[in-house]
């Protein structure tokens, strides 16, 4: 019985590495996009606000898998050929970046107005107000949300198996295909491996949630 697992795990481990690479790369992309779009949503320029909200609505209103297929299968029609990895990172980054921007925006708006007024009274520039006063407080509030989003993102990475990237899920399917009697253990192993990758994120979120209220003005 154990032999089965001993046989399976090394076969799908390379997939786990791809999954973790995907997780890290697209989390970084999503984070950058979340800040750009989140700041765009609270910009004083109406054009910037509407452009970013179109982006956010577009990516939150359609499915991650549809976006991934669009990038991988449809964009080549315009001459943009993405490798499966790049298509995966782009779709995950854009999709979770849109969700993340809501977290950024929400946290910025949650900072009491008195903080902005105090920094105006100290004659800070707009950017100084954002950088020195608003963001440091807002980021603390964003962290649990980002943590949760990263768990969602991890789950989302499994979709790249449908655009032929050999991630954890894809490797599992391959093993299952070559040895039908492995079907049950393979998927058990897959689920457990995803859970193991998620565990540090889960504990991280717990901790962040406990710390989130520190150093922020209480309403």
């Amino acid at each position: 019985m154990m032999d089965v697992y001993v046989d399976i795990i090394p076969k799908i481990l390379p997939g786990a590495i791809i999954t973790i690479q995907l997780l890290v790369a697209s989390s970084c992309l999503a984070l950058v996009i979340a800040f750009i779009a989140g700041l765009g949503r609270v910009s004083r320029f109406a054009v910037v606000r509407s452009l970013t909200s179109v982006y956010v609505e577009l990516f939150r209103g359609t499915s991650l898998l549809v976006q991934m297929f669009f990038i991988f299968f449809a964009l080549p029609a315009f001459g943009f050929q993405f490798s499966p990895f790049l298509a995966g990172v782009t779709a995950l980054g854009l999709n979770y970046g849109a969700y993340g921007s809501e977290i950024v925006r929400g946290a910025i708006l949650a900072i009491p107005n008195g903080q902005t007024e105090a920094s105006i009274a100290l004659n800070m520039t707009r950017w100084q107000r954002m950088r020195l006063v608003i963001l440091p407080q807002a980021i603390r509030m964003m962290l649990p949300g980002f943590g949760n989003t990263s768990i969602e993102l991890l789950k989302g990475t499994s979709l790249v198996s449908l655009i032929t990237l050999t991630d954890l899920t894809y490797k599992g399917l391959m093993v299952q295909n070559t040895n039908i009697s492995y079907t049950f253990p393979v998927f058990i192993v897959l689920l457990i491996m995803y859970f193991v990758i998620a565990l540090p994120l889960i504990f991280g979120v717990r901790k962040l949630e406990k710390n989130a209220s520190k150093g922020v003005v209480k309403a």
Partner: peptide
């Protein structure tokens, strides 16, 4: 603004 300063009813200190 560089010539004007203000103290608020609710302090508005920077908590961080």
């Amino acid at each position: 603004r560089s010539d004007i300063g203000m103290v608020f009813q609710h302090f508005n200190l920077f908590p961080h």
